[in-house]
C-alpha cells in the first residue's frame, strides 16, 4: 500500500494540517508520499521532505496549479492517484474543495472528515454536527479521504529526508481564474493549531468589546475564535468562526465567553481537552459540556481573568 497525501501549505512551507494528515496516513500503514502542487513551491517541497515518516515528495510546480484551482489540480491528482491505494487531504477549505472532484473523476465515493482509522478500509467520522459517529467501510480500489486534523496528533515536522521528484504535466482546464484574495491579518496563533482558544459569542455585545478577548488571548498566547452568532452579527470576520460550518478546533483549553452553546457551535469545539464557560445565564447549554463554568458578567470576569493569569 502506498498513500498519497495532498499537502496544504502557507507562507512557503507545509501547513500544520499536512502534519496531521500524514499522521492519519501513518495509521493506515504503508509508504507515505506527499504531493506539493502549486507555483514556486520548491521551498514547500523541501519542508515536506523533512516531515518524519514521508518516503517521497512529489512536486508539481506549474502556473496552472497556483491558488489550488480544483479544475486544474484535480486532474493532476487523478493522473497520479492510479498508483496509490489511498489519497488523503486535510479537511481544510482547499481539501474539501478539491478532493470530491478527484473522487468523482475516479468514480469512487469519498469519505469526509475522518476522525479515526479503524483499519485500511474502515474509518470513523462524525455526522449530524457531531451528534453521532459513523463507522464506514470503503470497497473502492482507491480510497479518497479528507482528514479532520484535530482527530490526529501531528507528526514531527523535522527528522525525515525524503527524495523530491518532479511529476505531472500541466493540466489547465481554462474554465476558472484566480482574481484576488483578501486575507484577515493576525499576529496570534492560527485558530486550528492553537493550544488555547478564547472565543466570544453574541454576549460580547459588539465588535469593539472583542478587545477584552484579544488582550486576554495575548497574555495566554491564545487564538481568538467566535460563535456563528458573533460572526453573523458582524462583530468579527467569518474566518474566526468555530462550529459545524466554520472551523473545527480541539485545543488544550477552550474558553467560551458569552456563548450559549448551540449544537452548531459545540460541533466545532467539544473535543477540546478542557472547556471553560463564562456566561451570565446559568441555564446556558454550554455549561453542560464545560469542565469549569463561571456564572458571571463577562465584562467583569474577563478583565479580572487577564489580570490574574
Amino acid at each position: 500500500m502506498t498513500i498519497l497525501v495532498v499537502a496544504e501549505y502557507e507562507n512557503g512551507a507545509v501547513a500544520p494540517a499536512t502534519l496531521n494528515t500524514v499522521a492519519a496516513a501513518a495509521k493506515i500503514g504503508g509508504d507515505v508520499h506527499v504531493l506539493v502542487a502549486g507555483q514556486n513551491v520548491g521551498g514547500v517541497a523541501e519542508s515536506a521532505a523533512k516531515i518524519a515518516g514521508v518516503a517521497k515528495v512529489l512536486i508539481a510546480d506549474n502556473a496552472a496549479y497556483a491558488h489550488a484551482l480544483p479544475e486544474n489540480v484535480a486532474p493532476l491528482i487523478v493522473e497520479l492517484a492510479k498508483g496509490y491505494s489511498h489519497v488523503l487531504a486535510p479537511a481544510t477549505t482547499n481539501g474539501k474543495n478539491i478532493l470530491p472532484r478527484v473522487a468523482a473523476l475516479l468514480d469512487v465515493d469519498q469519505i469526509s472528515e475522518i476522525i479515526s482509522v479503524e483499519s485500511a478500509d474502515t474509518f470513523k467520522r462524525p455526522i449530524y454536527a457531531g451528534n453521532a459517529i459513523a463507522t464506514v467501510q470503503s470497497s473502492a480500489a482507491i480510497k479518497v479521504i479528507t482528514v479532520r486534523t484535530t482527530g490526529f496528533d501531528a507528526v514531527a515536522a523535522e527528522g525525515g529526508s525524503a527524495a523530491i521528484e518532479a511529476v505531472g504535466a500541466a493540466h489547465n482546464a481554462g474554465i476558472s481564474a484566480f482574481v484576488g484574495e483578501e486575507l484577515a491579518k493576525s499576529d496570534r496563533p492560527e485558530l486550528t493549531a492553537a493550544k488555547i482558544v478564547v472565543s466570544g459569542g453574541r454576549g460580547m455585545g459588539n465588535g469593539d468589546n472583542f478587545k477584552h478577548l484579544y488582550s486576554l488571548a495575548d497574555k495566554l498566547g491564545a487564538a481568538v475564535g467566535a460563535s456563528r452568532a458573533a460572526v453573523d452579527a458582524g462583530f468579527v470576520p467569518n474566518d474566526m468562526q468555530v462550529g459545524q460550518t466554520g472551523k473545527i478546533v480541539a485545543p488544550q483549553l477552550y474558553i467560551a465567553v458569552g456563548i450559549s452553546g448551540a449544537i452548531q457551535h459545540l460541533a466545532g469545539m467539544k473535543d477540546s481537552k478542557v472547556i471553560v464557560a463564562i456566561n451570565k445565564d446559568e441555564e446556558a447549554p454550554i455549561f453542560q459540556v464545560a469542565d469549569y463554568g463561571l456564572v458571571a458578567d463577562l465584562f467583569e470576569a474577563v478583565p479580572e481573568l487577564e489580570k490574574l493569569v
Binding site: V108, D109, I133, A134, S138, F287
Partner: peptide, 23 residues
C-alpha cells in the same frame, strides 16, 4: 456505492464539570 456504514454510535459524553464561584 463503494461505501457502507457499519454502525452509528453516540459520541463519547464529556464528564460533568463543576461550577466555580470566582475568577
Amino acid at each position: 456505492s463503494t461505501i457502507k456504514t457499519l454502525k452509528v454510535e453516540a459520541p463519547a459524553v464529556r464528564s460533568a464539570g463543576i461550577k466555580v464561584k470566582t475568577v
